[in-house]
Design a protein around this nucleic acid. Structure first.
Lengths: 339, 339
DNA sequence: ACCATTAATGACAGCGCTGTCACTCTTCGG
DNA sequence: CCGAAGAGTGACAGCGCTGTCATTAATGGT
């Protein structure tokens, strides 16, 4: 596979290499006819510009970085797929970077990564999106970034988000529609902004249906299966246990189902369980899990596109975007048991 | 963040930039004292060579590609982590590439990817490892690659593998040790080489324990949850159903558990189920799933290292490597039921 | 008809490295 | 003591692009 250079294309099209460069980069100031002819030659030769040379000459790497620290592999795969779509569309490459948000050498490592890979911009996901130190570092470094986050805060950078409040409210409403009045809520890790939004959604749904809020039905988890088990026990051992439980992710919901099975509580007849995230597990459990599906891939794709537009300065101020989740009703939720 | 060049380092160390380059690339012909001094300056300035310039000048991208087409996100995440480790160690970058092995435009797409990203080498995983067209294409293209595959075939390229025969034999032995004699086997997709190795391991285990082989206990699946359901039904509806089932992956095992639950067959009291892969699901199911854990991350790391050594020509002929799996015993397997 | 402006293109240098080759300085066998 | 061989180093070109600026051709206002 011998390589084709811009020079080759230029000669074949009877123009200078600079003009070919203009076409490749969609620059203005090229006549339609010239553009067409060059494009034709490019297609003929299947020419692909040398990324290294482009990067070196233009002093930009054509690389996006994706930072994540999330135990759900399905979520990450979707993220990657989405950002990759955006990258492919605009000729960018993707550098993936699993991190540990709490590790003290997150910043030094990132600094090295930035120095060596010279990524043009970053896509950040929770919990990195709430790491002030990190964001400050990037700002001081003037590395552009976009956030994928439930946080609807007064961020000054572009972000894409889903409406966690609404998503939670919807799920709770679904439970209420089945006649449930005592609904347990298992929260996720405290520092994650999504956590409070889900609590808010829960409260809103109760209020709309004139159901009093009972603090005893809200327990803290940390997104792990184990914390779901603990929280489930705490809820189900109460003198007046809830008839339905909403967990802030599928793993914790799985934990609740485990507890229910141990306590011989049958789902959904004696207890309804609702998860969040629509992990593959949700379909494999017995019974299958009612849960909320997020358009993660789309979210990530938008984030990627937003970032690239920002890099190309085609971005008006700080655009942002919000997508919506969908409640997936399966077997784990049902009408409240007849006493 | 102003950038530091080799020239800066060279001046500060009182040598030519070429000598700095020699140190960076671990080339010989540099006196120990010079090397030390330069290294010191590099550390002081925290100098990182510009990858684009390196690539352009040396005509190699310093990029590895990772190709996969696998529905298990946990598996992919581990793969990525392993290869990333190898990459980081040797200053390589990683280009991930989810593909569809059966798509007709796999090759054209790959050709484009190779042309634009100019990856120096590829790490291939099943089922791409058995795609002759693809391998031939890479050969004709003289793109180096290593395979991660259970296939122990007469490959002429380096590969890392796990011993699927042994892993299957071990699991079956585990079931036999519990007193099981009628053991069902659910195979994975037919074209995957691992499939026959697992059948082989199954047969070997039976033979060693003088248990006759019954063809009726072996059914075909395709690695999906749904195929596990179908296969489970097929096995459990027999006049003399098996008392234990070995599924070729966890998703199919989950399918079997689903069926068992529907047929009111209790696990592990009336039926033992054993999975393969140790997906996260295995821990979340009720009961938790006995399964086989593969050292995927290590496998991937070795693959990456092998590939990089091959690229650096530090590789004697076609080295290969085999790692071993581990049986993780959980709740889904137990002694055969008293009649 | 004339200059000012804008559109379309090309010449050329140089991005930060590495490959090649030339050069100097030891070392050592005869 | 000389020539050959090897170790250590640097000068220099050039990888394939893009930015800058110069150049030419077309357009329009007066």
């Amino acid at each position: 596979m011998k390589k084709i250079t811009m020079q080759d294309v230029a000669e074949r099209a009877g123009v200078s290499s600079k003009t070919v460069s203009r076409v490749i980069n969609n620059e203005p100031r090229v006549s339609e006819s010239t553009r067409k002819k060059i494009q034709q030659v490019i297609d003929e030769l299947n020419f692909q510009p040398n990324k290294s040379a482009q990067s070196l000459a233009a002093d930009r790497s054509l690389l996006l970085g994706l930072l994540y620290d999330n135990p759900s592999s399905a979520y990450i795969i979707n993220l990657q797929a989405g950002v990759l779509d955006a990258c492919n569309e605009f000729g960018y490459g993707l550098v993936i970077h699993p991190c540990e948000n709490n590790s003290p050498d997150l910043l030094p490592k990132l600094r090295n990564l930035l120095a060596s890979s010279r990524m043009d911009g970053l896509v950040l996901t929770p919990p990195m999106t709430e790491n002030r130190q990190l964001l400050d570092f990037l700002d001081s470094n003037s590395t552009p970034y976009v956030l994928i986050t439930p946080l609807n805060l007064e961020q000054s950078c572009p972000l894409v988000s889903i409406d966690d409040v609404m998503a939670a409210r919807q799920s709770i409403q679904h439970l209420i529609d089945f006649g449930h009045k005592r609904i347990g809520l298992i929260l996720g890790a405290r520092e994650r902004s999504g956590t409070e939004m889900r609590l808010l959604g829960y409260q809103q749904a109760l209020e709309e249906n004139n159901i009093p809020f009972d603090e005893g039905l809200v327990v803290q988890g940390d997104f792990t299966f184990e914390s779901g088990v603990t929280a489930g026990l705490q809820l189900l051992r109460q003198p007046q246990p809830p008839t339905a439980i909403f967990a802030s992710n599928d793993y914790m919901a799985a934990g609740v189902m485990k507890v229910a099975s141990q306590l011989r509580i049958s789902i959904p007849y004696e207890l309804s369980v609702c998860g969040f995230d629509d992990t593959p597990v949700a379909r494999y459990m017995t019974p299958t899990l009612t849960t909320v599906r997020h358009p993660v891939e789309q979210l990530a794709q938008h984030a990627g596109e937003l970032l690239i537009r920002k890099l190309k300065k085609h971005l008006e101020r700080s655009e942002s975007e919000e997508l919506h989740s969908e409640l997936i009703v399966r077997e784990s939720t049902g009408p409240v048991a007849k006493p």
